[in-house]
């Protein structure tokens, strides 16, 4: 029977696990189940086994765009990645990163009145999504709503987020995690690039930039999961950038949260602040600009 398990388990698992929710955890489960019965028993009896401790969330570029809107940051077209650059992106690596970049630019554009520009940037995102085989797997009604809501700011934020979430979901379901990570990376770099420029207009962006240290570490960890040469190179640049954030002083003081069960809400009242000098900001800006240049040009 033990032998049957050796033969059956991989065969049973190979198709559904590869086509379904085949993440690292599933792979671990597959490996473990096919090894020995004793190990399977250990898995059953173990306590609080932490699986894949490298699931990281990156801040959405739309959050940066919303902060810009609140702070009334003025429009600067020269910050955007020009539409004409799209034709330079010929491989999956470039297309993935720049789909994220253009998505962040579209979030930025959502704050301003320029319907044609917004449509043009949406079309570029859609074009790259088509090239990456994402577009055909996204609900058409979501795409249709973009044109109808191009001038409705709140709707545009939400549609942009839903488009990228649908893409992320499709890619992860189909073991295209590297593409998903590169799209996130491109969006995060572009949003940080825009925030650095906004820091000249409003000091609150300096704090927001300083708070990205955790995100850049997450990004390094996400990129390091993949082994294509270009992604490894990008992970190296991000790791260099993360060193700049290590020098920032971050103070944190825990305060007991307050929960309102009736409204299903918890108020997180802990205090924190980040101290970032002009020199540190300038060095972060320099490195981000370099990384962004390597992505977009």
């Amino acid at each position: 029977m033990k032998r049957i398990i050796y033969i059956l388990a991989p065969a049973m698992l190979s198709v559904p696990l590869l086509t379904g929710c085949a993440d690292d955890a599933a792979q671990n489960a597959q490996d473990e189940s096919a090894v020995t019965v004793d190990e399977a028993q250990n898995a059953v009896t173990s306590s609080l086994v932490k699986i894949d401790s490298e699931i990281f969330s990156l801040p959405s570029p739309i959050q940066t765009a919303i902060l810009m809107h609140k702070k009334e940051i003025s429009y600067r077209e020269e910050l955007l990645n020009p539409l004409a650059n799209e034709k330079k992106y010929i491989n999956q690596y470039q297309k993935s990163l720049n789909m994220g970049v253009y998505g962040a630019d579209l979030a930025y554009l959502s704050n301003f009145n320029n319907s044609q520009k917004k449509l043009d940037y949406f079309k570029v995102v859609e074009s790259l999504a088509t090239d990456l085989d994402i577009r055909n797997n996204i609900d058409q009604s979501l795409i249709d709503r973009f044109a109808k809501n191009i001038d409705v700011q709140d709707s545009l934020y939400k549609l942009n987020a839903d488009l990228f979430k649908a893409g992320d979901k499709y890619l992860k379901q189909n073991d295209e995690d590297e593409v998903a990570t590169l799209i996130l990376a491109g969006g995060w770099v572009e949003a940080l690039y825009l925030a650095i420029d906004a820091a000249d207009q409003d000091d609150s962006f300096k704090t927001r930039i300083g708070e990205q240290g955790f995100a850049v570490n997450s990004l390094v960890n996400l990129l390091k999961k993949h082994d294509s040469p270009q992604t490894i190179e990008l992970a190296g640049k991000m790791a260099e950038l993360s060193k700049q954030f290590e020098g920032l002083v971050i103070n944190y003081a825990y305060v007991k949260p307050i929960t309102d069960a009736a409204d299903k809400v918890t108020y997180l009242n802990s205090k924190s602040n980040v101290q970032i000098s002009e020199e540190q900001l300038a060095e972060i800006a320099r490195q981000v600009t370099e990384i962004r240049k390597s992505i977009t040009q």
Binding site: C21, D23, A25, A26, A29, A43, V44, S46, S47, L48, V49, K50, I51, D52, S53, I55, F56, S57, L58, P59, S60, I62, Q63, Y157, K158, A161, D162, F164, K165, D168, K169, K172, L184, G187, R208, E211, F214, A215, S218, L268, S272
Partner: peptide
């Protein structure tokens, strides 16, 4: 508004999945 990401983990028995995230002040 979604953060644009989709997080998942396959759990068996008492396994624990761990997700890291930044929650920004004022949100």
């Amino acid at each position: 508004i979604s953060d644009g990401q989709f997080y998942r983990a396959l759990l068996y028995n008492d396994q624990v999945a761990e997700f890291e995230l930044s929650l920004f002040g004022g949100n």
